[in-house]
């Protein structure tokens, strides 16, 4: 009888766990739906940018403004951070706390590098008098690239908080779920950057 009771208790326990995990998977899917609706925001900004691309109002064009090696450096930093972010998730799935923190730290540093490069670029343009008030093209440019930068900033804050949480509590069911969401968010931002790189910078350079 004792055995039967223990067995049914453990079955009940594992059923409860499965239920919890299924809730987690619903949360992850919900987050995916959020990311996909975020696409609509970026799509609108991309459409605005393409429409206003040539409205420079006597100001600089993209080709005159952008330094291509600089942009390539930014792109490499973000692409590599997307990769190390994937490695962080893999380590987290293996419950390796130190490894997870290492890869997350590297992702954070690369993400911060990307953000600093972008802000330095914005600062340089604005100081030369090419701020968002200069022309329709620059308004659209700052809005599109700035919205992506704002997402990156939030991602970095989230990553810092997560790293602290893992450091304090280790990798639990809840923290793994959050790492998964964060990882999706970060990869998504890199996917958006592919199109910013191509449409804003590469197409911009071709318009010279």
């Amino acid at each position: 009888m004792g055995d039967l009771a223990t067995t049914s208790l453990s079955i009940a326990k594992s059923n409860r766990k499965i239920e919890q995990i299924e809730n987690d998977n619903t949360t992850l899917f919900g987050f995916w739906v959020y990311l996909m609706t975020d696409c609509v925001l970026f799509a609108s900004l991309f459409a605005t940018f393409v429409v206003l691309r040539n409205n420079t109002f006597g100001g600089p064009t993209g080709a005159q403004l952008f330094s291509m090696p600089y942009v390539l450096l930014e792109t490499m930093a973000l692409l590599t951070s997307s990769f190390t972010n994937g490695l962080a998730l893999l380590s987290a799935q293996k419950r390796k706390v130190k490894q997870t923190l290492f890869w997350m730290g590297l992702t954070f540093v690369l993400g911060l590098t990307f953000l600093s490069l972008e802000l330095a670029e914005f600062h340089k343009f604005a100081r030369m008098g090419d701020s968002w008030t200069r022309s329709g093209f620059l308004s659209a440019y700052y809005t599109l690239v700035g919205t992506h930068g704002a997402h990156i900033t939030i991602g970095l804050l989230w990553m810092a908080v997560m790293a602290f949480y893992i450091f304090k509590r280790g990798i639990t069911r809840v923290s793994l779920k959050r790492i998964r969401m964060m990882s999706m968010f970060w990869h998504f931002l890199d996917v958006v950057w592919i199109f910013i790189f191509t449409i804003v910078y590469l197409f911009g350079a071709l318009h010279a």
Partner: peptide, 8 residues
């Protein structure tokens, strides 16, 4: 907290 994974 016995980590259980339901893989989708």
């Amino acid at each position: 907290e016995a980590l259980v994974e339901v893989q989708e």
